[in-house]
Design a protein around this nucleic acid. Structure first.
Lengths: 182, 182
DNA sequence: GTCTATACACCGATAGAC
DNA sequence: GTCTATCGGTGTATAGAC
């Protein structure tokens, strides 16, 4: 099991439990590594694990979404691909959102900083897409926030209602309305 | 300090920390009651506290929002009042959402059941308003979900970005668009 | 109804052998 | 690089005095 694979497993766990509720025992169980082994890979313990997970999310956005923006295809298709990748990332609405579950309570400044970076990068993806579609900077900022609110909010509703269609519906709504000029 | 007042304090704490990260020590600190005293009021411990908090939220929706729906005023004004009350409830975007922070991890079925009840009642408020404004049942369900996604999502963005204006903007957006016929 | 004292499990983290 | 064993601290919860 490479370190990357460990972090992937950690991401799944952090997403489900959030920072505080995820214990080293649970991590030990799902990774198959003893606590001491985990400290070999992550000397700073749980906080370091969380930060690594957030950085991996950040890299994913960079490599999967932002790189995609530079393709020479029309913006509608680009946007469709972005939404499809997000759909896979959230497993059709079954996975919770890292930003959500990691940002409650009193976490360390380092963790909060990483969370902010992830959200900022995610916002920039939607912003740039809107700009490319012809919206002004200000309009694009507003639209990006609105789209992300819908996505994050729908993930909450999906998990409470145990109905991932809420998420899929919002994705579809965004796809048909986000780039449309009035 | 009456039991109602205790539960109000508990609500504030649960909203901030979520279920797992809120400890009895913290509760003891903010209520001024020893742990043993807390068990006098809530024999089933933290789980009972959480359930009482969720029931209070449910009662609040019933008394403050649903009762308001029965007023003999036009639906636009009604809706405006509802949004204003939600604005106060979320303290202009500074408070987190109970539904969000209480629904992660592996909580008991009882807690999850109460969370579902709160969300269902909240959805019904928006649904009924849309129906009164002339939308079909199906349209109203869709609109209600969309509005709640925006509200919940904006609360996440507001806390990560430390900018409660995100919440206010979404509230304003909902106010100007929710009842508008295309 | 509130307190002090305490039980016992589990937390994150470390020591040290292999 | 992984393990067993263990540390001090804190978690929820309880006993029993006042």
């Amino acid at each position: 099991m490479t370190k990357q694979e460990i972090i992937q497993v950690l991401m799944k766990e952090f997403r489900h439990f959030g920072y505080n509720a995820l214990t080293l025992s649970q991590i030990s169980k799902v990774t198959g590594l003893g606590k001491a082994s985990l400290y070999h890979h992550f000397p700073n313990g749980k906080e370091e694990m969380a930060i690594e997970v957030l950085r991996m999310a950040n890299e994913w956005i960079k490599n999967e979404l932002i790189l995609n923006l530079q393709n020479e295809i029309n913006v509608d298709l680009k946007f469709k691909i972005i939404l499809e990748k997000l759909n896979i990332f959230y497993y059709g609405g079954e996975n919770y959102c890292l930003l959500d579950v990691m940002s409650t309570g009193n976490n360390s400044r380092e963790i909060n900083k990483e969370i902010e970076l992830v959200l900022a990068r995610l916002l920039s993806v939607f912003e740039k897409t809107a700009i490319e579609a012809g919206y002004t900077q200000k309009q694009s900022e507003t639209k990006a926030k609105e789209a992300l609110c819908l996505i994050q909010g729908s993930l909450i509703l999906a998990r409470v209602l145990k109905d991932k269609n809420v998420f899929k519906q919002q994705l579809k709504f965004i796809q048909t309305n986000y780039l449309k000029k009035n």
